[in-house]
């Protein structure tokens, strides 16, 4: 088992004819993802890689190819429209890779898609991978992942790879790994991910990788105290970040004294969630928190 994506996932790639879209569509297919359609307005009727039909709209991809999951690689100015189009066409899971969507747009997109029963992962995220099902939706490098009991949820990309690489090398495979995105407004937060991991029988422990900015980690800590029975290990990036400066991610900013790494670490420690001081401690803490997982 896994969360969000599995063998039944039928992916439509929005922006499949673009540079990133075509590259990652191929990568996803090579891994085993069932890419059933692509969408690029104006290029409908063609085939991608000689087999995947391209449509002008997501609506056609749903109707003709029974797509149920979308992944978006279009540039930021066009991404809000792409997300709304997917939700309106009945897609229930949208993964948006695009970086640089204005906050004002996301504030309008989120209520629109929720009204249609659609979940968004991202934007500005690396996507989702379920190694046991050999399915990935996004840009994560498949070779470093292994099937196993650890759920991983993170606001970042390469830092997640770093941690997963260590987990896999130490024999701790992953049920599902998802990047929720580095922006201020995102569709799926830590609490959503923890809820899903809590319900997933394969997931026996969760690694949560947070960073400065906002209060998502603090809210997750309270949620863990009340609702999560599985062991969780956390790491927070940005302890040395100066206030008022955006650290790469649009959401990684300490503003008005809130969103510091210190507060987030304290929030986790207060509810008994072990927090790794450095990334290389994470694997050890997982083994300690869930001793029955060790191979």
């Amino acid at each position: 088992m896994s969360i969000l994506i599995d063998e039944k996932t039928r992916v439509v790639v929005q922006g499949i004819t673009g540079r990133d879209g075509s590259f990652h569509a191929t990568q996803m297919m090579d891994y085993g993802t069932n890419v059933v359609a692509g969408v690029t307005p104006g290029k409908g009727g063609n085939l991608f890689a000689d087999k995947v039909p391209i449509y002008d709209s997501v609506g056609e991809a749903v109707k003709e190819a029974q797509a149920n999951t979308s992944v978006i690689y279009v540039r930021a100015p066009f991404a809000p429209d792409a997300i709304c189009e997917a939700a309106d066409a009945g897609i229930k899971l949208v993964v948006c890779i695009s970086e640089g969507i204005p906050v004002r747009d996301m504030a309008r997109v989120l209520p629109f898609i929720r009204e249609r029963g659609c979940r968004l992962v991202g934007p500005n995220c690396p996507g989702v991978i379920s190694p046991g099902a050999k399915v990935k939706v996004g840009i994560l490098p498949a070779s470093i992942f292994a099937d196993g009991p650890v759920g991983v949820v993170s606001r970042s990309g390469t830092l997640t790879y770093e941690v997963v690489f260590q987990l896999s090398n130490q024999g701790l495979g992953q049920s599902t790994c998802l990047g929720i995105g580095g922006d201020q407004l995102i569709g799926t937060n830590f609490i959503d991910a923890l809820t899903l991991f809590g319900e997933d029988p394969q997931t026996k422990a969760v690694v949560l990788i947070g960073e400065i900015g906002g209060t998502d980690e603090e809210e997750a800590a309270s949620f863990i105290a009340d609702k999560v029975d599985k062991p969780v290990v956390a790491f927070i990036a940005g302890q040395t970040a100066p206030p008022g400066k955006r650290m790469g991610h649009a959401g990684a900013i300490v503003s008005g004294g809130t969103g510091t790494a210190k507060e987030k670490i304290a929030a986790f420690e207060k509810v008994g969630v072990p927090v790794a001081k450095i990334p290389s401690e994470i694997t050890g803490l997982v083994k300690k928190a869930a001793p029955n997982l060790s191979p």
Binding site: S154, S156, T158, L159, G182, A252, K277, I278, P279
Partner: peptide, 17 residues
């Protein structure tokens, strides 16, 4: 010099640690 914002922050933190 690091690829990725999260890893770049973690690298700074590690230098301090």
């Amino acid at each position: 010099i690091v690829n990725g914002a999260g890893l770049a922050m973690a690298t700074m933190d590690l230098i301090k640690t």
